[in-house]
Amino acid sequence: MTLARRSFLGKIAIAGAAGAVAPFLLRPGTAQAATWKKRLTGTDLDTNSRWQVAGTDLGIPYVLENGSIGYLFGDTFNTPWPEGPPLPNDWRSPVMLRSNIHPGAPGGVVFDSAARVAGNGRAPELMHNGHNGIGIDGLWEVTVIPNDGISFPETGRQLISYMSIENWNSAGPAGPHWKSRYAGLAFSDNGNDFIRTSLKWWNTGDNTDPFQMWTMQRHGDWVYVFSVRSGRQDGPMMLRRVRWDRLFYPESYEGWGWNGSNWGWGRPCTPILTGRFGEPSVRRLSDGTWAMAYLNCATGCIVTRTAAGPDQVWTGEKIQVTPWQEPGLYGGFIHPWSTTGANNLHLMVSKWTKTLDNRSTAYHMSQFVGSL
Score class of each variant (00 low, 15 high):
residue 1 M to A: 11
residue 1 M to Y: 15
residue 2 T to S: 14
residue 5 R to I: 13
residue 5 R to S: 07
residue 12 I to P: 00
residue 15 A to P: 03
residue 15 A to D: 15
residue 23 P to I: 01
residue 23 P to L: 05
residue 24 F to L: 10
residue 25 L to Q: 10
residue 32 Q to H: 15
residue 32 Q to A: 13
residue 32 Q to F: 14
residue 35 T to F: 15
residue 48 N to G: 02
residue 55 G to L: 10
residue 55 G to T: 12
residue 57 D to T: 13
residue 66 N to Y: 04
residue 66 N to R: 01
residue 68 S to A: 03
residue 68 S to Y: 02
residue 71 Y to M: 02
residue 71 Y to L: 04
residue 72 L to F: 05
residue 73 F to E: 03
residue 74 G to H: 04
residue 76 T to Q: 03
residue 77 F to N: 03
residue 80 P to M: 10
residue 84 G to T: 05
residue 85 P to T: 03
residue 105 A to S: 06
residue 111 F to N: 08
residue 111 F to I: 07
residue 112 D to N: 15
residue 116 R to V: 02
residue 118 A to W: 09
residue 127 M to R: 00
residue 130 G to L: 08
residue 130 G to V: 04
residue 134 I to A: 06
residue 150 I to P: 00
residue 154 E to Y: 07
residue 160 I to T: 10
residue 164 S to L: 14
residue 164 S to C: 13
residue 165 I to S: 05
residue 169 N to C: 05
residue 173 P to E: 10
residue 174 A to Y: 15
residue 174 A to W: 14
residue 176 P to N: 12
residue 176 P to D: 11
residue 176 P to K: 10
residue 179 K to T: 00
residue 180 S to E: 13
residue 186 A to M: 00
residue 187 F to M: 08
residue 192 N to K: 11
residue 198 S to P: 15
residue 200 K to L: 04
residue 202 W to R: 03
residue 204 T to K: 11
residue 213 M to K: 09
residue 218 R to F: 11
residue 221 D to Y: 08
residue 221 D to A: 14
residue 221 D to R: 13
residue 223 V to P: 01
residue 234 D to I: 06
residue 235 G to P: 08
residue 249 Y to I: 13
residue 251 E to M: 06
residue 254 E to H: 04
residue 254 E to D: 11
residue 256 W to C: 12
residue 263 W to A: 03
residue 264 G to E: 08
residue 265 W to D: 05
residue 265 W to K: 04
residue 272 I to D: 10
residue 277 F to G: 12
residue 278 G to D: 04
residue 285 L to N: 07
residue 294 Y to W: 12
residue 299 T to M: 02
residue 301 C to S: 02
residue 305 R to M: 15
residue 311 D to I: 09
residue 312 Q to V: 08
residue 316 G to T: 13
residue 317 E to Q: 15
residue 318 K to N: 14
residue 323 P to M: 11
residue 335 H to T: 02
residue 338 S to Y: 10
residue 338 S to W: 14
residue 340 T to D: 02
residue 344 N to P: 03
residue 344 N to H: 13
residue 345 L to H: 12
residue 348 M to A: 13
residue 351 K to Q: 15
residue 351 K to R: 15
residue 357 D to M: 14
residue 359 R to C: 07
residue 360 S to N: 14
residue 360 S to D: 14
residue 364 H to Y: 07
residue 369 V to G: 02
residue 369 V to C: 01
residue 371 S to P: 15
